[in-house]
Nucleic acid binder design. Sequence first.
DNA 1: GTCTATACCCGGATAGAC
DNA 2: GTCTATCCGGGTATAGAC
Lengths: 185, 185
Amino acid sequence: MASSASEALTPRAREIVAAARLILEQEGPDGLSMRAIAERLGIRAPSLYKHVADKETLEVALISDGLAEIAETFESAAAAGDDPLASIACAYRGWALAHPHLYRLMMDRPLPRDRLAPGLEDRAAATVVAATGGDPDAARAAFAFAHGMVVLELNERFPPAADLDAAWNRGVAAFGRRRERGSGA
Amino acid sequence: MASSASEALTPRAREIVAAARLILEQEGPDGLSMRAIAERLGIRAPSLYKHVADKETLEVALISDGLAEIAETFESAAAAGDDPLASIACAYRGWALAHPHLYRLMMDRPLPRDRLAPGLEDRAAATVVAATGGDPDAARAAFAFAHGMVVLELNERFPPAADLDAAWNRGVAAFGRRRERGSGA
DNA sequence: GTCTATACCCGGATAGAC
DNA sequence: GTCTATCCGGGTATAGAC
């Protein structure tokens, strides 16, 4: 199943993307230079340009891979528990905290929609919409809440003593599908 | 009333901060170089260092000023309408959309708490806590929601057709103080 | 308080040899 | 496909003259 945009790249280019990701996750965005990527592969920076057009292409590949991973994570989470929105929220937070620099790279700018695999963005969104009972306003509000919580947590914006789990629960409860009488199926 | 941290700076330093703010708001963070600031003031970059220690000090001043403005905005909003949380949310969104680059400078990193005027952060937070009926979890969730909405809107993350006002209303309703029977006073 | 000159670092990217 | 050499741009910041 082709879920990663970097699969359209040559094998060598995929190695370069993989090296870039390691550097990004370990050293942050300031460490992600073409020179550093080349060094990790044991070559010189100019050689990279035989395989990748430019740095921006590399970043698009990283963003695309991250999006695909989030979509997969959402689908697993939604299928797992009896409270899809809570499961998705938990998965979202977990993924973001596990990949802070990649998460920021993905979120801190407009999506390069014209360079992503078609349907990728919708795939991630669909599970959230479903979990909010098909209400797009609630889905967007829930997305905003989750992103806000994650990014404020990453940026150490809350007081150290703050109970972030409680705040998460408060938000998830606010946007969850209203339980219907009887079965939800 | 001393609400702005840059009031502790010399008059010339405040002129520099003002120039920096104009550049930041008009050209974004990449345009905010010491050279550009100096040029706007009709001097050379090295001269700035007679008045300001370094660039980071300048950024702290910008952040501090922005925080003070937000706190003032919140206080006015909370006092104005009959639904404080909705008023604050509206003020928050309005301020952020009016100052996108400054907003990001303020939010995209940990707060330099040790370099801010004491009580400044709490002052902004207090109105939100009050508007959520004193529930800190709800206040944090509301903060996260508002920040998420604003930053996703700034980053053009929602579909162009999305009704963001509706999403805002959905979130504000979710975190607002539960109306008590009779009067709220 | 401003200047010139400059040190020192970094980055992305290209040309052309091998 | 990799290399060396290099271009060209940018940035913060300091030294020392005036």
